[in-house]
Write a protein that binds this DNA or RNA. Structure first.
Lengths: 363, 363
DNA sequence: GTCGTCCAGTTATACGTAAAACGAGAGGGG
DNA sequence: CCCCTCTCGTTTTACGTATAACTGGACGAC
């Protein structure tokens, strides 16, 4: 046997190159054809291959450390068993948890999940496929701009949206934010708060519209009033800015002595904004929660990192991700998927307390 | 022309199926062969195809919305122009920024970048390829457990490590943490601090060993002493726990009146730990920075979300990612890459102040 | 006129897998 | 004895791309 020679065609069973072993190599080692290898390793061999041959194939594959070439498989099958998860940002660890939930379900179904953090945050979304570099079977997307969404739809890929309007996609998984707001307002009412301000995200997204509408309705239903509102970018800095604006208008040196009065509680669209609001209150010399209460939404790690810890609405991030992935799998399976609406729960911590202005309304 | 018929072989130029157009479709539309399409679109047509034909091909491709099948290309070429970025966790937005930097460079070189958050944090790493579902050209990894690293090396893939020991990989990109610690200690010395405690991460990783060693050396060089140390998980809760341990030993009800005395400053291995230390101090009734100073490392968003804001060492996260990707590209290009060591900068904020115990050492 | 030599393409092939179509031998029934 | 079925495989093909190998003219040079 000479030392080196070019890989001869039909040289079944010997492998010279440094590349990964292929199905043909396994076939050679096991003394069968590549087709048999594919059948056995694909699990569809029952009644077509004898048990001992199947075992020999598996042994050879194990021996050589064979792993099928994904590109070849994809080319052949036209599917990849891979999904893309598009998230607006990773500075909010809510989405990191969503990913974990989705990845777990994906793994259990032998699916891959590629995480795509939309670079421009929530607004723009350049071609995710350029980044993913994979043919995809479907997409799970969170809070996407309409333009990016239509681009995605143009690909003809199954699409599951998280926290988004129903329609225009194959399935939705939402959290019951209206109920979350309801719990927040009820909690504040029980604490005696009647004048409430809204620190909102300046993002034109369905999920934030829901929060605003629910807040309005719940305040009305509880006999409370909205005294001030401001919008800011979805970040701590944005919350700081918006809350400063609201609080200086109410408590600042030139406070307009409005008929409505000053807010005793700030309801914020998410935890980042709420933490910004905490900072704003502190900078203005307002004590939290003695003088002003603050609430958030999400219950991210940040919520318990600050002092006082944040009263917030805990969203089941992991379940959202898991449900999103399951919905996508169902869609790929041709099933009809009805919209999911996951429950949320208020977590009361140190950032809310009794209203300074009035006594408790209950006896 | 009958309504429907099976796709006839050799039916050049007409496309019935709902699938994406292929190179053959473009060829049919442009009146050339698939090979010519590949040549033109691949950019290697100069001197082989006339300009007007090339233009016709490009027009047809544009018209049909042709996009090459990645799987087929990968299968043919054996490379994917895709890299994997392995990060320990996404709760720390440092890595989100690293990803952004790497993704930008990747995009500029027509490379894809898939983000893989190691589920078990820093310790274990199940097969990333199962998740990525792509053949990969290389890997950029951050703070990996040795076992996961060897598994990765076993794939024979080019590997660039971030903040890791040199050797055992093809290139490293580090930040100059020793210098960061030097700046921290110098700052504390200037503030009169002589007794310092170390809040460390209980992670056996090169990058944290560097911090511990550097702190030891710098304290010695500046005539300060280490009075207490504790390790905790890399999180706010971990920092809270470790710092509580250190501070109660020094200031608590049963404080051992050690010869060394109590620490006036806590140097923490990262910002999460530092925020936990802030909480611990506050809970024990110690004011920051009046009674105890706290420093972190990373300068994540969290650092400015808390009150007081954190004095910390800013790491050039985006540059780390960019340098990592560039290093990988160079390795793939067969070049020798020398280890990079990026500069860091101390950012002084509200969590550090003059030592309460002694006057300033300088005139 | 014959022979290179370009030009402007085409034809053919390989990548590794999945699966449809196709045997070959054994055994059984009529 | 022939045909049918059943078992256990093999041969072949297609997926879409990149590129090596080839071709058929046109054009000069000798």
């Amino acid at each position: 046997m000479p030392g080196r020679h070019a890989p001869a065609a039909g040289d079944h069973g010997t492998r010279q190159g440094r590349g990964r072993p292929t199905g043909h190599d396994v076939a050679g080692a096991a003394g069968v054809s590549q087709a048999t290898v594919s059948l056995v390793l694909g699990g569809k061999w029952e009644g077509r291959v004898s048990t001992r041959t199947a075992e020999a194939v598996r042994a050879a594959a194990r021996e050589l450390g064979y792993r099928p070439n994904l590109a070849a498989r994809t080319l052949r099958l036209g599917r990849t068993r891979t999904a893309l998860l598009v998230v607006p940002a990773l500075t909010n660890d809510f989405f990191a948890t969503v990913h974990r939930g989705a990845a777990e379900v994906a793994g259990a179904h032998d699916f891959g999940l590629v995480l795509y953090p939309s670079p421009e945050g929530i607004d723009a979304a350049p071609d995710p496929f350029a980044s993913a570099r994979t043919a995809l079977d479907g997409v799970i997307a969170s809070s996407m701009a309409p333009e990016a969404l239509t681009a995605l739809r143009g690909e003809g890929l199954p699409l599951v949206m998280l926290d988004s309007d129903e329609g225009a996609c194959d399935a939705t998984v939402n959290v019951d934010l209206a109920d979350g707001i309801r719990q927040v307002v009820a909690h504040l009412r029980d604490m005696g708060h009647r004048r409430i301000a809204h620190i909102a995200a300046d993002v034109d997204s369905w999920t934030f519209e829901v929060r605003a509408r629910a807040l309005e309705e719940e305040l009305h239903a509880n006999g409370a009033t909205l005294v001030g509102a401001a919008r800011g970018p979805l970040s701590v800095a944005g919350g700081l800015e918006a809350a400063t604006q609201v609080l200086t208008a109410a408590y600042g040196p030139h406070a307009a002595d409005t008929a409505e009065g000053s807010p005793t509680a700030l309801v914020c669209d998410d935890d980042l904004l709420a933490v910004g609001a905490l900072k704003a209150a502190r900078r203005l010399g307002l004590r939290v929660p003695e003088e002003v209460s603050v609430t958030g939404i999400d219950d991210v790690a940040l919520a318990t990192a600050v002092e006082p810890e944040l009263t917030t609405v805990r969203l089941p991030a992991e379940r959202v991700g898991a449900a999103g992935m399951r919905a996508l799998l169902a869609v790929l399976d041709g099933q009809q998927v009805e919209p999911a609406r996951l429950p949320v729960q208020l977590v009361v911590r140190g950032s809310t307390g009794p209203s300074p202005s009035g006594g408790l309304p209950r006896p």
